[in-house]
Design a protein around this nucleic acid. Structure first.
Lengths: 213, 213
DNA sequence: TGCAAATGTGAGGATTACTCATGTTCGAAA
DNA sequence: TTTCGAACATGAGTAATCCTCACATTTGCA
């Protein structure tokens, strides 16, 4: 953890750290910069976070900010790294000692709850992983589309299972749809070969849920 | 489809259309603007797409561009709308006449393939729904994290199912993990109540896959 | 033909990420 | 203690880019 939080990105690539704080003084200042950025993200989202405002709130000059973080993404990523480390530890703890199916069931169930709790409790984490970063308005429209698309599925499910709770069917349909989109996004970023496998696996899982075993 | 593609967003809200093209001349120009934007997004991604370049390539002035699209997001969204309409139609066609479980199985399976094909074939669609828009470098780091997190799950699965194909287990673990993150992102945007239901439904589905029925 | 509305223009305003020339402080070697 | 290079700090200025607006032109129509 020694000044390793200055990794940044540039032009689609990860840039080397501009400078690692080696003196006590600068370490404290970098801490203040991160705290300021964190607060601003929590208040307004990372998109609306202005570098000048971060510097001002941290009580440093804009130049100092760029001395340690090569660009805006770097400071956001440095924050993300902290949460990542935190959640990695939590995953390792939950799944580390599983040895049978029942243990997995318990551990996984607990893990999801904890993770969900983290998402709900940490506005910064929420923002970084899913917030304004990707355009709030567009996200809402995407959600509306997903709902519209899922409705076709809902209709079919309601027809096939008239006895089931309609609200539950809607939830299932939306979830399956959203998972499908997530799978395809993932499939694209991992490349064709592995992507095809992922889509096939998704199809299996979704069908199991939709039409039973 | 009559000049309905000028909806845009501003400051987190959907803005009313600036102006709908009513004359033949302007309809053609708007068409050219959209084509130029589409080409640029396909070449460089929507992030790198510059409004000035769109105008230049469409052979219109920057002012004309802003006459019909209130801001940059509006033109991106107008393009997204086209693909949305296209895929909606395709969903309706696939799921419209399903009446039994076997029909659903076939229709859903086919639908996933078509949708996946659309994603693969349309660079613009790919970009808009998952491309540079959300920061390529960050996405790759997220993917690396997801893989790292999924590894814990993979390890457990390999232990519980020593006979299974390791590569398939890795795929399953990555998929389940990614779906979990997608579910939580979704859960956050739909609000607490429905979000809880979605997470619970995800847990059920994931566990079914992980530890069987 | 005349005129109001629709359309078209592009220089320039406004914002904001980021740079750089210059000054200051620190740590340690002499 | 002095000295000196490296680390640290500064903030006015640069560059890039979204978007506006005052004004010119074209179109449809009474």
């Amino acid at each position: 953890m020694e000044g390793s939080s200055v990794a940044g990105s540039q032009d689609g690539q990860i840039a080397s750290p501009r400078r690692a704080p080696s003196q006590q003084r600068s370490r404290e200042r970098v801490e203040r910069m991160l705290a300021a950025a964190s607060a601003l993200i929590a208040e307004q989202g990372s998109d609306a976070m202005r570098m000048g405002e971060v510097a001002e709130r941290a009580g440093v000059s804009i130049g100092s900010l760029y001395q340690f973080f090569p660009d805006k993404r770097a400071i956001i990523w440095a924050l993300a790294e902290r949460y990542t480390a935190e959640s990695q530890a939590c995953i390792a703890a939950a799944l580390g000692e599983v040895s049978d199916a029942e243990g997995l069931r318990r551990a996984f169930s607990e893990l999801v709850d904890i993770y969900y709790g983290l998402f709900l409790a940490e506005p910064v984490m929420r923002d970084i992983w899913s917030g304004t970063q990707a355009d709030k308005a567009l996200r809402e429209l995407e959600l509306a589309d997903s709902r519209a698309n899922a409705e076709f599925l809902t209709a079919v499910l309601k027809q096939l299972r008239p006895a089931a709770d309609p609200a539950a069917l809607e939830t299932t349909a939306l979830l399956i749809w959203q998972m499908g989109e997530a799978t395809m996004r993932l499939a694209i970023s991992v490349g064709r070969k592995e992507g095809d496998d992922l889509v096939a696996a998704y199809k299996r899982m979704a069908l199991r849920e939709l039409v039973g075993e």
